[in-house]
Computed example of a mutant assay.
Amino acid sequence: MNAIVHSHAGAPAPSLARVYLSEAWYELLRLLRTPAFSVPTLLFPAVFYGLFGIVLPGSYGSLDKATYLLATFGVFGVIGPALFGFGVGMAIEREQGWLELKRVSPMPPGAYFFAKIATGLLFALAVLLLLSTLGFAFGNVKLGLGRWLLLVATLLLGTLPFSALGLFVGALVRGQAAVAVVNLVYLPMAVLSGLWIPLFAFPAILQKLAVVWPAWHLAQLALGVAGQGSTANAVGHVLVLLAWTVVFLSLAARRLRR
């Protein structure tokens, strides 16, 4: 018995990288075993894109409809895991006391947030691969490999402000309320940012008000990369998204310190 105790006491501590990766792996397993999260996250954007971008007829003038909607539904698809992974997941874990347990454990605090961000990005990438498969196979999307890779990179990096927003929601409300709050933000923002239906089909006042939504700014970046919009104000859109990230992170940090 003494030898066993001595052996465990003298065992080297796991590396920081291993701790981070282990936390991310178990977070991924938890989400995969939660069909209420994984199934809608993966399938809803694909179903909507297939309906609006491929099945329903229509023309967007000089724009390529399938490519245009690949960019905008790509935005819709990647912000879902960011909002729900942080917002709902963290709220439930905080309500159950799991977050407090992690705080008093030897685990580095950053591992928890790394796991949330990493799994959110993995789900976002899976959504983009599914959308792209539909678009190239059935929508006749015309994007070169380089432009498509740039679009994927833009959308994945663009999840940052929505992860920050989800973090704020998760720090602000309780578990079950977080689901309602995230949906009340996510779905109206998607519609009013022109992610489902192009903004030029909306009344003029709604087109002007779209600039208040961070999803609209990410959509403009995605459309520019996909060749379906202008890239003239790309720096401005990036700065707005960064500003929203700082605001939400600051609000979340202030709330978590209470």
Rank of each mutant, 00 (worst) to 15 (best):
G110A: 02
A71I: 03
L70I: 09
L99N: 13
S163D: 10
S163K: 08
S132G: 15
Y60D: 12
G135L: 08
Q96T: 08
F84S: 03
F168E: 02
K102P: 05
T72H: 14
S132H: 07
I79R: 13
A115H: 02
S105F: 01
G80T: 08
I117Q: 05
L157Y: 06
L99W: 13
R103E: 13
Q96V: 02
G50M: 05
L155M: 11
V173G: 10
T72D: 13
F113P: 02
T154G: 10
F113Q: 10
G97C: 06
A171H: 07
A126H: 06
L151M: 15
P109Y: 11
L160I: 14
L160V: 15
Y49R: 11
A178H: 02
L143S: 08
P45K: 10
L69G: 11
R94D: 05
W148Q: 07
P109C: 03
L56P: 02
V173A: 11
G120Y: 09
G77W: 12
G144A: 10
Y68R: 11
V181D: 03
L149M: 14
F114Q: 00
A91W: 04
L101S: 15
S38V: 01
Y60A: 14
V78S: 08
I92E: 14
G110T: 00
L165F: 14
I79H: 13
I92L: 14
A177V: 09
R147A: 15
F113H: 11
G144L: 12
G50S: 04
L101A: 15
R94C: 04
